[in-house]
């Protein structure tokens, strides 16, 4: 049997819930019987630094780290972070990104510039990008912390398993920790999923896209 490994790279900024999102993805893969490895370098990243979380699953996973050029999907919780890690994507891979921007003090203080249009820069590399503002959706649902489930909803139809498996992992997590948040997270997940579905549709109708 061929050992097909799925490589998902989730990136963002410390405090955004990148590691939790990857953990939920891992739980979904485990529920289907996959071997799983998940890695990130935690430590100072908790203080607003760069976070990249690698998830690999399949029959048997050896190295926990995704090599540059090997990621099937990059999930960017923040615009510039999606750009920062875009060289990790394999040829024909997909970037799903939040267009929200988190500007660090070194940028707002004028030491560095924020990229004018990270999304366009990634596209210029010939990469397929689906971008939307997850924070706006989370805000509409009334809680910024829902951004995490919105992003997971966005990736749900691009995984090698059914979206419902991922939804089930999210709901189970909240069922044991915060049962009152189950319904809101289901809505956040659905909203993220629909946002991406709409984008894919629009992009398919735009012939000269890219």
């Amino acid at each position: 049997m061929k050992n097909m490994i799925t490589n998902i790279l989730v990136v963002g900024v410390g405090g955004q819930g990148v590691m939790t999102a990857t953990e939920v993805l891992a739980e979904a893969a485990i529920s289907l019987g996959h071997d799983v490895k998940k890695t990130e370098v935690a430590g100072m990243s908790q203080r607003g630094g760069v976070v990249s979380s690698h998830l690999r699953f399949g029959l048997k996973v050896l190295s926990p780290k995704i090599a540059p050029g090997d990621a099937d999907i990059i999930v960017g919780f923040e615009s510039a972070e999606a750009l920062r890690w875009s060289h990790y994507l394999r040829v024909g891979g997909l970037v799903l990104m939040n267009t929200a921007r988190l500007v660090p003090p070194v940028v707002s203080g004028g030491l560095y510039a924020y990229p004018t249009d990270p999304q366009a820069e990634i596209r210029d590399l010939g990469i397929e990008v689906h971008a939307f503002d997850a924070m706006v959706i989370a805000k509409q649902l009334g809680d910024m912390r829902l951004g995490n489930s919105v992003m997971l909803g966005a990736i749900a139809d691009h995984l090698p398993f059914r979206a419902e498996v991922l939804l089930e992992s999210i709901l189970q997590r909240f069922q044991t920790r915060k049962p009152e948040m189950v319904e809101l997270n289901r809505r956040a997940f659905t909203a993220g999923r629909e946002a991406i579905a709409r984008l894919v549709q629009v992009e398919a109708l735009t012939p000269n896209f890219a």
């Binding site: 203080r47 510039a80 750009l83 924020y114």
Partner: peptide, 18 residues
């Protein structure tokens, strides 16, 4: 050939105090 895509030039994001 595999190494054609170079990392994008993006500002550093050092950890900060809360």
């Amino acid at each position: 050939a595999e190494r054609t895509v170079l990392p994008a030039q993006v500002f550093p994001r050092p950890p900060t105090l809360c």
